[in-house]
Design a protein around this nucleic acid. Structure first.
Lengths: 113, 113
DNA sequence: GCACTGTATGTCATATCTGACATAGAGTCA
DNA sequence: TGACTCTATGTCAGATATGACATACAGTGC
């Protein structure tokens, strides 16, 4: 239930920007995936901005290069906990994460008025 | 690594508002816990606002009452994925989640140290 | 008192995630 | 060409989370 549909997404090509509900995902599933993708992108940006390779980041995280790659690829085997934790270790604040999360949001809501 | 220190927190009494780093948690660990607590609170509020019991919510989530209780209690065995997914199923938007996350944040704005 | 509802807490088999490893593709440099 | 770096992808044993269950506790109404 948690992996199957996301797997489909992976296979499907990932237009990501809004490529979700069209596969019959529930709003919740779609939103969750988009949030994770927002975090993935944010992680890669932050890592690069820090001038770190995946190997170096993996060292800091006490993880491995392959997992970092999967994180940045939005692999369905990566949990939100891991993404968030990694971002925090790179110095992201809760506000930064909030932005990354909303970054994955659809077209919703207006800005101010 | 992921559970041990949080377990300490649980045992410690949970003054939650800012009860974190004093135990020797890294910034990342502390922030992660606070974010989860923000989500926990948000989940309970939203559930109650919907007039649902834990049992009823568990039904919607295809989970169990005990897990809902643990979610709302901020139990360390509950992942962020589960919390977020649950909130989304209750109609929360990415923006709502962003707020809940930042709700657990310390010194919100700028300034360090 | 009892019965009922809502919530909390502990345990456990199974599902899922994680780090580590191997391997491969793409790019650079000499 | 080969050697090197960085990244991507697959696999797997071991760690962790999950749902289900039992049980307990507080409150309400009778």
């Amino acid at each position: 239930m948690r992996k199957t549909k996301r797997a489909k997404l992976e296979t499907a090509g990932w237009a990501v920007g809004s490529v979700t509900e069209f596969l019959g995902l529930s709003h919740a599933e779609a939103a969750l995936i988009e949030m994770k993708l927002g975090l993935s992108r944010s992680l890669r940006e932050r890592r690069q901005k820090c001038g770190l390779s995946q190997v170096q980041l993996a060292g800091r995280l006490r993880s491995s290069q392959s997992r970092v790659a999967k994180m940045e690829a939005g692999d369905p085997s990566v949990s939100m906990d891991l993404l968030v934790n990694s971002l925090l270790l790179l110095g992201a604040t809760a506000t930064d994460l909030a932005k990354a999360i909303r970054g994955g949001e659809k077209g919703k809501g207006r800005h101010a008025a």
